[in-house]
C-alpha cells in the first residue's frame, strides 16, 4: 500500500511543483519507489522541472479516460530508477478529473509504489480538491507572506473537512513547509518569521527552504534542486526528507547570515 501525499498551498506560485519534484526525488533516492503525479491539468510544468517534457506520449487524463494504460503513461526518471512521473495533460481542462477516475489510478499505483506524490494546482476549486481528496498526508507549502499563509490556512480547513479521511472520521497528517524564506527580510520584519507562521497555522514544521537563485537555475536545467547539494535550497529539501522519515534535525537557514568582510568586498 502506497502512502499518498499531496503537495498543496491554495495560493499559486509558492513552490508546490518545485517541492513535489524535490520531495519525490528525495524519497526515490532514499530507496522508496515513488511516483509523482501532476494534477495541474492544462498547465503542465512538472515534466519541465523533471526534464522529461519531450518524453510525454500519454498523460494522466488519457489514463483516466481509458485511452492508455498506466504503464504506457508513466515516465521513468533518467537519474533515479525508483522515480516515475505521471504528467498532466496540456490540452484538457480540469473537469476531466473525476473522483472515480482518480481513485482507480491511485489504487492501481498503490499496489506497486511506496509513495504517490500529488502536485496540486493552485486554488481551492475542483482541481485542488481532486489532488487532496485521497491524501494520507499533506505537505502544505507556504511563503512568508500574509496572503499565502491565509490561503494555506484555508487549504488546511478543506483537508480537515473535505478529504476522504475527514469524511471517514480520521484525519490527514499535516506538514508545513515554508519556502522562499528570506532570513534578512524576515529579520527586518518585512516578511513573516518562521515563528509567526507556525503560530498562525499550528501545524508541525517539516522544513524551511530559503529563497535561492539555484532553484530557478535548477528548474531551467530540468534538475530537481535537491540534486544540487551545494545550494542551501537543495540541502534544506534534503533535511526535510530526513525529517519526513522521522529524524529530528535542527532547522537550518532560518537566521540571517552576517556577511564576512571578504564577501562584502567581493560578493
Amino acid at each position: 500500500m502506497a502512502k499518498i501525499i499531496v503537495v498543496t498551498s491554495g495560493k499559486g506560485g509558492v513552490g508546490k511543483t518545485t517541492t513535489s519534484a524535490a520531495i519525490s526525488m528525495g524519497l526515490a533516492l532514499s530507496g522508496k519507489k515513488t511516483v509523482v503525479i501532476d494534477f495541474d491539468i492544462g498547465l503542465r510544468n512538472l515534466d519541465l522541472i523533471m526534464d522529461c517534457e519531450r518524453r510525454v506520449v500519454f498523460d494522466f487524463v488519457n489514463v483516466i479516460q481509458g485511452d492508455a494504460s498506466l504503464n504506457q503513461a508513466l515516465i521513468k526518471d533518467k537519474r533515479c530508477e525508483k522515480l516515475f512521473i505521471l504528467p498532466a495533460s496540456q490540452t484538457r481542462d480540469k473537469d476531466a478529473l473525476t473522483k472515480e477516475g482518480v481513485e482507480k489510478i491511485l489504487n492501481e499505483l498503490s499496489e506497486t509504489f511506496d509513495y504517490i506524490i500529488c502536485d496540486s494546482p493552485a486554488g481551492i476549486e475542483h482541481g485542488a480538491q481532486m489532488a487532496l481528496y485521497f491524501a494520507d498526508e499533506a505537505i502544505v507549502v507556504t511563503n512568508p507572506e500574509v496572503s499565502s499563509v491565509r490561503d494555506s490556512d484555508r487549504i488546511l480547513g478543506i483537508l480537515q473537512s473535505k478529504s476522504r479521511r475527514a469524511e471517514q472520521g480520521s484525519s490527514v497528517k499535516e506538514h508545513l513547509l515554508i519556502t522562499r524564506y528570506d532570513t534578512a527580510r524576515a529579520a527586518k520584519g518585512e516578511m513573516l518569521s518562521v515563528t509567526d507562521i507556525v503560530d498562525i497555522l499550528a501545524v508541525p514544521l517539516l522544513g524551511v527552504i530559503p529563497e535561492s537563485s539555484s532553484v530557478l537555475t535548477a528548474s531551467n536545467q530540468g534538475t530537481p534542486v535537491i540534486l544540487d547539494l551545494k545550494s542551501n535550497a537543495g540541502q534544506a529539501y534534503a533535511d526535510a526528507i530526513r525529517r519526513f522519515e522521522g529524524e529530528d534535525l535542527e532547522m537550518r537557514f532560518i537566521k540571517p547570515v552576517k556577511k564576512g568582510i571578504l564577501s562584502r568586498v567581493f560578493g
Binding site: 481551492i124 491565509r150 490561503d151 490556512d153 484555508r154 488546511l156 480547513g157 478543506i158 480537515q160 499550528a202
Partner: peptide, 8 residues
C-alpha cells in the same frame, strides 16, 4: 476542539 480555519 480543532482550530477554526480561514473560510470556515
Amino acid at each position: 476542539t480543532q482550530q477554526v480555519r480561514s473560510g470556515q
